[in-house]
Design a protein around this nucleic acid. Structure first.
Ligand SMILES: [Mn+2]
Ligand SMILES: [Mn+2]
Length: 230
DNA sequence: GCATTAT
DNA sequence: ATAATGCAACGCTTC
DNA sequence: GAAGCG
């Protein structure tokens, strides 16, 4: 995982960290991962002791890879990050998320939705650890481009900000080797301390905005939930 | 936040 | 002892 | 190759 650390709080200086230094905190692990020419150690967490260490380090955001340690080169998760451009109303974002969900369903894939904590949504799609990164990346891109082709009024797959006005950017770029997406239940280093929160599809209505759940009100939701929304 | 270096 | 300092990511897209 | 982006 990659960490976003803000030792002096989110208004202080924040920085991303992908590698641990010479001394590794006892509750975390470092594993070697092959890169172009060299091999570099990345950060692994196993349990709540590790999580408490992250708190001590001033970590405000946790960004895991789309694959896990035992099969690094075979991703187990696809992510579609829906980023509404300026002028997009929330009901349109909800409808768009449903379009993505339905398309994935037609392709035989189940998707789960979580708030981002900001303005958009994340669709998380479990996949079998069978294909390599290049194939998975190409598939995600193809799904995004296909949705743009079907609904050019609603979607764009281009990152350029000016192209996003009145559209939803289907950000498939998180499905690259080494790329990350903020974890479910991670806080965001933003005003109000929002949390990226898993929800059921039937909860996704006009009132459930993507910044709805925060450090201060998420515990109430979790206490009231009868089962894991996913 | 922490390890290292300067006072 | 205490204070100051340096450091803690990176890859893809677009132009 | 730099700038923008996440
Ligand atoms: Mn997003
Ligand atoms: Mn995005």
């Amino acid at each position: 995982m990659t960490l976003l650390r803000c030792p002096d709080g989110r208004v202080g200086e924040c920085f991303y960290q992908k590698h641990l230094r010479e001394s590794i905190p006892a509750a975390l692990r470092a594993i070697p991962i092959r890169e172009k020419n060299t091999t570099t150690d990345y950060i692994v967490i196993d349990d709540i002791k590790g999580l408490i260490t992250l708190v001590q380090l001033g970590v405000l955001e946790i960004h895991p890879w789309g694959s896990s340690e035992t099969k690094i080169e075979k991703p187990d998760t696809l992510t579609f990050d829906l980023d509404p451009g300026p002028g997009m109303k929330w009901p349109e974002v909800i409808e768009a998320a449903g379009l993505v969900r339905r398309r994935l369903e037609e392709l035989g894939l189940i998707s789960f939705v979580k708030t981002s904590g900001g303005k958009g949504l994340h669709l998380v799609v479990p996949i079998q650890r069978r294909s390599g990164w290049e194939e998975v990346r190409a598939f995600a891109r193809a799904v995004a481009l296909d949705l743009v082709r079907r609904r050019p009024d609603r979607f764009t797959a281009e990152m350029k900000k000016v192209k996003r006005k009145g559209k939803i950017f289907i950000d498939y770029l998180h499905n690259n080797r080494g790329a990350t997406t903020v974890a479910a239940f991670s806080t965001r280093a933003w005003a109000g301390a929002p949390v990226s929160t898993p929800i059921r599809w039937d909860e996704l209505t006009w009132g459930l905005t993507p910044d709805r759940y925060r450090i201060d009100n998420l515990p109430r939701r979790l206490a009231a939930l009868k089962s894991d929304p996913w």
